[in-house]
Write a protein that binds this DNA or RNA. Structure first.
Lengths: 261, 261
DNA sequence: AAGTCCATCTCGTAT
DNA sequence: ATACGAGGTGGACTT
């Protein structure tokens, strides 16, 4: 993470840092006194006060007060940001098209201003929904197919966990990868990795399977699958089964949570 | 705004700064690599990545990625925050009661950490709604009282604008402060300031009023008023009039917006 | 504390 | 581009 900090910069210095950060597509954070005007879907004014301003490289613009989880003013991603100095005062403006919206921040005293190039390739995994799906399938294996017998959940292989391991009615091994939303290429790649991991590890399931000359079936279980992934599974000999994740299980879920390890 | 910054602190130093900030009820901002676990109404995991963490004195806890206006993980106000070091690693935990929710952040390399005591006494004014109310009152002055004659809108005094200035049927001056939502102590203080401002400025209304030995009445106009504000207005000799703001005027409002000054 | 309703809802997805 | 629905919706207000 490359970053730079300025303590109590002049508005000129702050303007320079801002331009530098924009050029580098960095995220900007400012602790400063400011005054805010917004017009667009609604219309608002916020008088002088100390706040935290966060400007992200995707165009998001947030102004936070010292209370609440929601920003007091903001602009969504893809908004165009602009800074200028007028009467020795630094202004930040963020403009959105469709619908047309304008956020204007007039800066006062700036305490801390910094920018940083943030590297983050991870996406949030909502494990809850997949767990619900898993629960549902363990309870009603026929959702997958007639005669399906699940044996193990969260089976550990080198690159992660196989969601559900089981057998079909002819005792072929079945390896299920669950997705609570439309399955994409990533899901197929993940399952492929798990299949390879499984095939390379010396485990009892595998031995038994080979002894009985049974197959290993890989299955993507998701509400839907996108086109590219669909082509891929045919090439890879992977199967797709459409299953919608269950809804309204929140209360049950809470009971199973074990807080404080 | 009192503040302190640490660049690339050790986890021990960061822990110290955290405790200091909590004691001072400051707002904390951290640019760092981290890993996040959440369980409560849902269940989520977020693997290592660089993010911005914001912890507010009201207990709000936000983790922002470099995209989107919404935080990737968060806790609402009144959550209890706790920090500890385990295996030389700094963890931040935020716990909410009812519903029970836990957010755990495992920190990696910390680039910038700072805290600041933010002073902000201003509340967002959704001027759209107040403008609607103002329009309605100008059109139907009897909403306020029989014989009310509004004369001026947005009358400029030192600390801001008086929403509506007018006279009652006995020609006493009336100064109206409009609120589109429940009026609180802030609203009363604001009106008080405007009354003082008005009284100290040399304007024609005031001269005429004094010449004719008329009174100056201060009125809060809002849908409702909270208990503390109610006590206050009796002490201050201010009046309260209950008026609901009109609804469904958004489309009209947009037309009147004049972008780019 | 629980329920209802609004939001500059945001965000994803399908059309 | 627009339409529709879900969300750890948040947050204000009522009961």
């Amino acid at each position: 993470m490359k970053y730079k900090i300025l303590e109590e910069p002049s508005h000129d210095k702050a303007y320079e840092l801002f331009q530098e950060a924009i050029k580098k597509k960095a995220t900007i954070s400012i602790f400063a006194k400011c005054k805010i005007h917004y017009e667009g879907r609604a219309l608002s004014e916020l008088n002088w006060g100390e706040r935290i301003i966060l400007i992200k490289p995707d165009g998001s613009f947030l102004v936070h007060q010292e209370k609440k989880v929601e920003p007091v003013n903001w602009q969504p991603p893809k908004s165009r940001i602009n800074a200028y100095i007028k009467n020795k005062t630094l202004f930040l403006e963020s403009i959105r098209r469709t619908p047309r919206e304008l956020l204007r921040v007039e800066l006062g005293y700036i305490n801390v201003m910094n920018y940083a190039n943030i590297e983050d390739f991870e996406e949030l995994e909502q494990t809850g929904h997949e767990k619900d799906m898993s629960d549902m399938i363990m309870k009603n294996p026929h959702i997958i197919e007639e005669g399906f017998k699940p044996t193990t959940r969260e089976y550990n292989v080198e690159h992660g966990f196989i969601d559900i391991l089981g057998k079909d009615k002819e005792n072929n091994l079945m390896i299920l990868e669950l997705k609570s939303r439309k399955a994409g290429v990533n899901a197929i790649k993940q399952l492929k990795r798990y299949l390879d991991d499984f095939d390379e590890s010396e485990n009892d399931y595998l031995k038994e399977c080979r002894a009985a000359k049974k197959k290993i079936r890989g299955l993507i279980v998701a509400p839907s699958i996108d086109e590219i992934a669909k082509e891929m599974i045919e090439e890879e000999g992977i199967e797709f089964i459409s299953v919608d994740p269950p809804k309204e299980l929140k209360i049950d879920k809470k009971v199973t949570l074990d807080f404080f390890k």
